[in-house]
Amino acid sequence: MKSNLKTLDQLIEETYGKLGSPSRNKFEWGAQLFKISAMIKVARLNLMLTQKEFAIKCGTSKYAISIAENNLIEIRISTLQKIVELGLGGRLVINIKL
Rank of each mutant, 00 (worst) to 15 (best):
N71Y: 08
K62A: 10
K57V: 02
I65D: 01
K82A: 09
I73L: 06
E53G: 09
A68M: 00
C58N: 03
N46V: 03
S66R: 05
R76E: 12
S66T: 07
R44L: 02
A43R: 05
A64H: 03
L45R: 08
Q81K: 13
E74T: 14
L45T: 10
A64D: 04
I65H: 00
L80M: 15
T60N: 11
N46Q: 13
K57G: 03
T60F: 08
L45M: 11
T50W: 12
I65A: 01
N71R: 04
S61D: 05
I83N: 01
Q51D: 01
A43E: 08
C58V: 04
A43P: 01
Q81H: 13
M48A: 13
V42L: 06
N71T: 04
I75G: 03
I67E: 04
I65N: 00
V84H: 04
V42Y: 00
G59H: 10
N70S: 12
K52F: 13
L49C: 07
E69Y: 05
T79L: 09
M48I: 10
V84T: 14
I73Q: 08
I75A: 09
K62M: 07
V42K: 07
L72M: 09
Q81V: 11
I56H: 13
T79I: 15
E53T: 05
E74K: 14
I73W: 04
S61R: 04
A43D: 06
L49S: 03
G59Q: 11
C58M: 06
Y63L: 07
L80C: 11
T60I: 15
E74I: 11
I73A: 07
I83Y: 04
A64S: 09
Y63W: 08
K62V: 01
E85L: 09
F54K: 05
K52D: 13
E53Q: 15
L80H: 08
N70P: 03
A55Y: 08
R44M: 00
T60V: 15
Y63T: 09
N70Q: 14
N71E: 05
Q51H: 05
L49R: 02
G59P: 11
I83M: 10
N71A: 15
